[in-house]
């Protein structure tokens, strides 16, 4: 196939047709990225629990919606027979995600295991737990024809506004929460733990709350993504932490390019969602260009590595032995 043939085979109409799907997925994965934002940016730790808790959220929501789950829980929501309410399934997914985060928090705070390792351990354990939740099948379908779902790739244009509203409500709640006494204490813990202890903040407890809240949101996002794609899968969280980082970083770069100076916290969170949308728009583009989608995770990793590395490289440029050998960067006076 020649280049001309290749270009000729690209159909712009198809790109336009697929973009809305990218937007819908971007919003939902952007919500997942909001969870990552809480640990990565506010608490200043890298939490890999999300790769497990995302799938946990999907599994819990789908199992409940498709008629599974413990009988007492179904009875509690008046669903002994009939469909488990979709909102309740998402609520339970959130709560289970909170528990996942607490496990990581306890491994970190009580057993002194470094945060990254604690997250990896929980994530590994969750793989088995998720299989148990899904009664040992690795994939459970949930059809939008049979069940009432909030979002579905079959009804993309209807899903986008619903997803946007859900995300807006969550951003509103987070904006309020991180402005409260407790939320401020969590931000202070991530920013300066020494100062926080000196001001009477129990930093281990704050980290615990942060891990819990983060994974609750990630699991909620998992419950929504499972609905959107029409199934829950034990592997659906693979790469989630890096995709989350990508969205956070894209949002960061974009917001700093647009706004000068102080950026409102709600705006920052909105840009994390926009980061998710941009990420999925790129995914759609890659698919459209008929590049190998198996390479997508490779691209993602490279892009995130670059963006994480750029601030370091910039500081190296200003302050390196190579430039010192050449007589310095010449800004000694300023």
């Amino acid at each position: 196939m020649t280049v001309i043939d290749y270009l000729y085979s690209l159909d712009p109409a198809k790109l336009l047709k697929n973009l809305p799907g990218g937007v819908a997925q971007g919003i939902l994965w952007g919500l997942m990225a909001l969870g990552v934002y809480i640990t990565f940016r506010l608490l200043n730790v890298s939490d890999l629990t999300v790769e497990g808790s995302f799938a946990t959220g999907g599994a819990v929501a789908v199992v409940l919606i498709t008629g599974g789950g413990p009988q007492w829980l179904r009875a509690l929501f008046g669903a002994s027979s009939g469909q488990f309410p979709t909102w309740a399934a998402l609520l339970i997914a959130f709560v289970v995600g909170v528990l996942c985060g607490l496990v990581t928090g306890m491994l970190h705070s009580y057993l002194g295991i470094p945060a990254i390792l604690a997250g990896i351990l929980t994530q590994l354990a969750l793989f088995s737990v998720n299989l148990h939740i899904m009664s040992m099948s690795s994939n459970i379908p949930v059809s939008v024809d049979k069940y009432e779902l909030y979002v579905s790739s079959r009804y993309v244009l209807r899903s986008i506004p619903i997803a946007a509203v859900i995300v807006a409500v969550i951003i509103g709640i987070l904006y309020w929460y991180f402005g409260t006494e407790q939320g401020s204490a969590i931000r202070a813990t991530g920013n300066n733990p020494v100062m926080s202890s000196a001001q009477g903040i129990d930093i281990e407890r704050m980290k615990m709350i942060g891990f819990a809240l983060s994974n609750g949101i990630v699991a909620l996002a998992g419950g929504l993504v499972a609905q959107y794609q029409g199934f829950a899968d034990v592997n659906m969280g693979r790469g989630a932490s890096v995709i989350g980082l990508a969205a956070v970083i894209i949002g960061d770069v974009a917001s700093k390019a647009i706004f000068k100076g102080h950026i409102n916290f709600a705006v920052k969170m909105t840009f994390v969602i926009l980061g998710g949308i941009v990420y999925y728009a790129v995914v759609i583009l890659v698919l459209w260009l008929k590049l190998n989608t198996n390479d997508l995770k490779l691209f993602t990793a490279i892009i995130v590595a670059l963006f994480l590395g750029i601030p370091y490289l910039q500081s190296r440029k200003r302050e390196s032995f190579t430039s010192a050998a050449k007589g310095g960067s010449g800004n000694a006076e300023t």
Partner: peptide, 15 residues
């Protein structure tokens, strides 16, 4: 405000 709340419970009131 963080310092002003030293020794007090940090709840869900405004920061």
């Amino acid at each position: 405000a963080l310092a002003y709340r030293r020794g007090k419970k940090r709840g869900l009131g405004w920061g």
